[in-house]
Amino acid sequence: MNPLQRIHSAFSEAGATGWLHAVDIDSGAEISAGADQPVVTASVHKLPLLLALHRQAEQGLVDLTEQVHCEPAHRAGGPTGLSAMLDPVRISLRDAAYLMTALSDNAAAALILERVGLDAVNATTASLGLTRTRAVRSFAGTLATLREDAGPTGIQALSDPHVIARLRALDPARTNHSTPRDMTTLLRAVWRDEATAPEHCAAVRRLLGLQVWPHRMASGFPFDDVHVAGKTGTLPTLRNEVGVVEYPDGGRYAIAVFTRAANPAATLPAVDAVIGTAARIAVDGLRTR
């Protein structure tokens, strides 16, 4: 089978529908499996927010060392970082950016979004030509729509296919959205120092390289000398990751993988792993060329 056939087969065997775009950052060679399909970004949209923060820092509109205060009662929900802490926290914007990127901390993202604003996030993606990428609401706002749409039975209802079908958070037309191609275009601009000033692109790359989750894209590249930097996104039935894989010979590849599972279970290791499998097939195909 050719790489595209293998990618589609891998998604099918994992019980998911998947969309992928992979591009050689230097040559522009690409592999597409639904690269222009509108997709829900979920926490992948923290990457455009991170870039918007650094663009504002470059313009002198934001001091990354600025301290912000975060009270427990006003934090966005989530299982990591500030979201899981019990006491008041005072933290710099750049350290909040670390928590937002490496741990996908929703409360840290809320602090940064409050300082930067949705308009700046959308202006950033528009300036890069990402015409199919848009932030519609905050991450806390997305979680709020999940609670509203699930109804009075709460999280238990998210196993019901009829409830899943009505969730605004899973509809690209009604929530934060992009395409796999738009996301690799953004990553390519960051890795080529074209998205903002070189020192700020380097800072974005550093934070993506500190992501702690090894179970998706990184699982496809279990080598000590291959570096994977990325950002995940997760919502009911959705598992995503966008990132860059760098080889010791200088090869570097931007990859975006978005999936939707047929099974609404919260734990689906096969779907997590297929993100790494599909990414590896795509990168191997590009390197063979």
Rank of each mutant, 00 (worst) to 15 (best):
4 L>H: 00
7 I>D: 01
11 F>M: 09
12 S>G: 11
23 V>A: 11
25 I>A: 10
26 D>V: 04
32 S>G: 06
35 A>F: 02
35 A>V: 01
42 A>W: 09
44 V>A: 14
45 H>V: 14
49 L>I: 12
51 L>H: 10
55 R>C: 06
56 Q>S: 13
58 E>K: 03
60 G>C: 07
68 V>C: 11
72 P>H: 04
76 A>W: 14
76 A>L: 05
78 G>D: 08
84 A>Y: 03
86 L>M: 08
87 D>Y: 13
87 D>L: 14
112 I>N: 05
122 N>L: 07
129 G>N: 10
131 T>L: 12
132 R>T: 12
135 A>N: 05
136 V>M: 15
140 A>V: 02
141 G>V: 12
142 T>N: 09
144 A>I: 07
147 R>I: 13
151 G>E: 03
152 P>H: 09
152 P>S: 08
154 G>T: 07
155 I>Q: 12
160 D>F: 11
163 V>M: 06
166 R>N: 03
173 A>D: 12
173 A>I: 01
178 S>Q: 09
179 T>P: 04
182 D>Q: 04
183 M>Y: 08
188 R>A: 13
195 A>Y: 08
201 C>K: 05
205 R>M: 06
207 L>I: 01
208 L>C: 13
211 Q>T: 14
214 P>G: 05
216 R>L: 05
217 M>Y: 04
217 M>D: 04
220 G>T: 09
220 G>F: 04
220 G>R: 08
221 F>G: 11
222 P>H: 08
222 P>I: 07
223 F>P: 00
227 H>P: 00
234 T>I: 11
236 P>H: 14
240 N>M: 10
242 V>F: 05
246 E>L: 08
251 G>Q: 07
252 R>P: 06
252 R>Y: 05
254 A>T: 09
257 V>T: 11
262 A>D: 15
263 N>M: 01
271 V>G: 13
273 A>P: 05
281 I>W: 02
288 T>S: 15
